[in-house]
């Protein structure tokens, strides 16, 4: 019973906040509604006992993607009222895409009812009782450890590449040199002068 209640709660909020993403006037509000939709979709995933996907949704989509959206929306000076101005002229194309998607959905459900495609068995199977985070962890750090490490190398190469291609030493900057600061002695930094009255200070 409680699962059904939870499902309807999450599902309603996902659909409602999805609608609000489109209808909100303020783009920042749209992104905030999107984050709410992601959180509730994650709740739906937990109900399906796909807790790994739920975590990915929260960490990757909310933590990274949505926050990035938020920054972009806030930093770019986009006039959203102007963007929406062409609604009527774009409506036929948008409507056509919507119809295509709807037909695809119907076809997909029909194909699903007709029976699954005969796909092969998965090679890397674990007992069904294992929670899927544990299952992924076990595979990633035992069977696929070699590839996991290599994937780390790919990220390192990407980082080196980004630095090689974009980093340059700019002239005219005054970076902090702690070593030089520490080596500075009072006699180079402080000067005692006998300031005559009525004259400007010489610096």
């Amino acid at each position: 019973m409680i699962q059904v209640l939870a499902f309807y709660l999450f599902a309603t909020i996902v659909v409602a906040s999805g609608a609000m993403v489109i209808f909100a006037r303020n783009p920042v509000h749209s992104v905030l509604w999107l984050i709410l939709a992601f959180f509730n979709a994650a709740g739906l995933m937990v109900l399906l006992s796909a807790e790994f996907v739920a975590m990915l949704l929260v960490i990757v989509y909310v933590g990274a993607v949505a926050v990035l959206f938020l920054f972009v929306v806030m930093m770019l000076d986009i006039d959203f009222a102007q963007l929406r101005a062409g609604f009527v002229s774009y409506f036929p194309l948008g409507g056509a895409i919507a119809v295509v998607l709807l037909v695809e959905l119907v076809l997909g459900v029909g194909a699903w009812k007709a029976g699954a495609i005969n796909l092969g068995q998965r090679a890397a199977r674990l007992p069904d009782a294992t929670p899927n985070i544990e299952a992924i962890g076990q595979l990633l750090y035992t069977r696929y450890i070699f590839l996991f490490e290599a994937a780390g190398l790919i990220l390192l190469v990407a980082m080196i590449g980004a630095i090689v291609l974009t980093h340059r030493a700019r002239g005219g900057t005054r970076p902090q040199n702690i070593d030089r600061q520490n080596r500075r002695r009072p006699d180079e930094a402080v000067r005692n002068i006998d300031q005559p009255v009525g004259q400007g200070v010489e610096l």
Partner: peptide, 17 residues
Amino acid sequence: FLTLYVGLELNSLAAYV
């Protein structure tokens, strides 16, 4: 195929740079 792909990407990414 996984080793193939990871190796290929590691090589390609370095090559692009």
